[in-house]
Nucleic acid binder design. Structure first.
Lengths: 84, 84
DNA sequence: TCGACATATCGAAAATTATCAATATATCTG
DNA sequence: CAGATATATTGATAATTTTCGATATGTCGA
C-alpha cells in the first residue's frame, strides 16, 4: 500500500508544510499517519526499502522524504518476470 | 527453483519411464528428487501452487504431473507490475 | 544549550510460515 | 486380493517475520 500511495503522492498526502512540492517524495511521518502501524515499524519498512534501493531517501532537516525509485522497481519486475 | 526447472523440463528431468514426453509436465517424485526436502513438503508446495492455478495437475495412474500454467503466471506478473 | 519533534535502532513477544515424520489414500501389478 | 509404490493429509515443532514499546540519535528554534 505504501508503495502504491507513493505512485501519486498528491492524491494521497497533504503537501508538506515547509516544502510545497513532492519532488523528493513524502515525509515519513505522513506515511505513518495513513497506516495504523507504529512509528518504529514504519521507520523500519522505509529503511529496508531504501536499503534495497526501491525507495530513495532525501533528508530535509529533521524530515526524511521517501520516493519511489522507478528504475530499480522496473528492474525488479523484469528480474521477477525472468525468474518466474 | 521448482518453477524455473519446469520452464524447460527436458533440461532438468529425465523423461518419465512410461510416458516418453513432458506434455503434462513433470512427475512429482522427480521434482522431489532434485530438492532435499521431504515428500510431504514437496507435495504441499505442488498442491498449493496447483490450488492457486500457477501449476496444472494431470494424473496418470498413480503419478501426478505438474506443469506451469503460463497464462496465469503471465497474469500474475502483470498484476504485480500494476501494483508495485 | 535545552526541550521538542522526527526518525532510527534494539530487544522482545506474538503471529505466521516452513518443514517434517507419521499416517492415510489411491493405484498398479502379480 | 496383497503388497508395493506414488501422492496427500495431519499435527507438531522449528524457523522466520511482523510488530511493538522503549530508548537512542539527530536537528531545529527559543
Amino acid at each position: 500500500m505504501i508503495f502504491n500511495w507513493l505512485k501519486s503522492p498528491e492524491e494521497h498526502f497533504p503537501p508538506h508544510e515547509d516544502l510545497k512540492h513532492f519532488n523528493d517524495g513524502v515525509c515519513a511521518s505522513y506515511i505513518k499517519e495513513k497506516t495504523n502501524l507504529s512509528q518504529s515499524t514504519i521507520s523500519n519498512y522505509l529503511s529496508m526499502m531504501e536499503k534495497c534501493k526501491i525507495l530513495t531517501l532525501t533528508r530535509h532537516g529533521k524530515w526524511s522524504y521517501y520516493k519511489r525509485n522507478e528504475e530499480i522497481i522496473e528492474n525488479y519486475i523484469l528480474t521477477l518476470k525472468n525468474n518466474l
